[in-house]
Nucleic acid binder design. Structure first.
Lengths: 211, 211
DNA sequence: TGTACATCAGTGAACGCGCGTTCACTGATGTAC
DNA sequence: TGTACATCAGTGAACGCGCGTTCACTGATGTAC
């Protein structure tokens, strides 16, 4: 066969996207290369024309998934209505039953962090970089005058988001799972309300990264 | 061989404890029955004299690990000095570099929740029950008059604890990992300080579960 | 007291199976002449 | 314009390996007589 220009790059992307979804749904080690390639509409032998190893794909898939999530968070932040705290929009969207129940399209952090933490140094480095980028988006949108305080607050919020989704998914009792989301969401929103004063004080300072 | 009374029960406990440590360190699917039995000083064939399947062991190991952790949290709560918020003690101990770096003895929730959420219904049920028990311990120690509010607060705190340890372990950059622990810890402690008034108001009401 | 047998926690070879990876091959199209 | 060949994304059989699980066996001690 001879394929049109860009065909291979397109296949590459399809494998990465399929992998990212399968990994989140089933876990990295529970998805075989053969299963994954079949999901992408290919046979398993062609895999190594695109990636040096399964580990290399894992790193690419994690990076892709976190990029997509960062863009989504940016959209949420941008969608905040005038006077509304953009972080509150992120919190409500992230800690939703939709996000909990849609692990295949959800954030890779609650789904894959534990597995990545234990091995695959390349994927770990990618995760660290993308995590920092995600925190930067949240920090830029957050209250507080001091930029270090903004980043610290963003990190703490993200920890709660990730932990709550993780526990809500692990829980077998659907009412309790809902309660984990609700309780974590309310704590964060209440905490944001109590810092609203500081936010108002910061209003109309020099923007840092706006384009 | 004929073994003394209680020998089998002791071996059972040794397998469960070894398994719990190995699972947290390496992940459930990355530990084989043979490797685990060797770590417990036994050969792999004897495994099925104790457990119906690897899944049955997983459920037992998760239950054991969460029981141990609940007792540890109870000790932390009891160790709080007069006038100190017991939850603050839990937060400082949980979000420590020692806990992050000692995954084998650490909380099973950040280490195993993602893997358990995806399969093994028995382990999921056990996790749910033990999670509720852990939340109850935190709720009993927490501020707030209203018991529903105490439970909600405990759930939110636990979400942050679990998420922060998970992200701190996944991060490759040791300074950033420390910062994840610090930022999450400070947010929780600050939040506890702001509810301290309500705690003082609650002082000397009827105790609920004290023994 | 001595002998034959039952017990049963633990052993280790063996099973079928699916894994990650390799490699000789395919075949429609682009290029050389 | 027509023919021979190079290209290379994708195919599918095969590799060595380790997995969870099974099972015939071991052997020190307790029990029956």
């Amino acid at each position: 066969l001879r394929y049109p220009a860009g065909h291979k790059a397109q296949t590459f992307r399809r494998i990465v996207e399929t992998a990212c979804r399968c990994f989140r749904r089933q876990g990295i080690n529970e998805v075989s290369v053969a299963e994954l390639m079949a999901s992408a509409g290919l046979s398993h032998g062609g895999f190594y024309a695109h990636f040096a190893s399964k580990d290399a794909l894992v790193a690419a898939a994690v990076g892709h998934g976190l990029d997509v999530k960062r863009h989504l968070v940016e959209d949420w932040v941008a969608s905040a209505e005038r006077g509304e705290n953009p972080i509150a929009v992120v919190v409500r969207n992230y800690l939703s039953t939709q996000h909990r129940d849609n692990i295949g399209d959800g954030c890779p952090l609650p789904a894959l962090s534990a597995e990545i933490a234990r091995g695959n140094p390349v994927a770990r480095t990618v995760l660290t970089e993308k995590l920092m980028a995600l925190v930067a988006v949240l920090a830029e949108a957050g209250p507080f005058d001091d930029s270090a305080q903004r980043e610290a607050s963003a990190i703490a919020v993200l920890s709660t988001l990730v932990g709550a989704i993780l526990l809500a998914r692990a829980t077998n009792d659907s009412r309790y799972s809902d309660e984990i989301l609700r309780a974590s969401r309310e704590m964060l929103l209440k905490s944001l309300r109590s810092t609203a004063v500081s936010k108002r004080r910061r209003a109309k300072k020099q923007p840092q990264l706006s384009g």
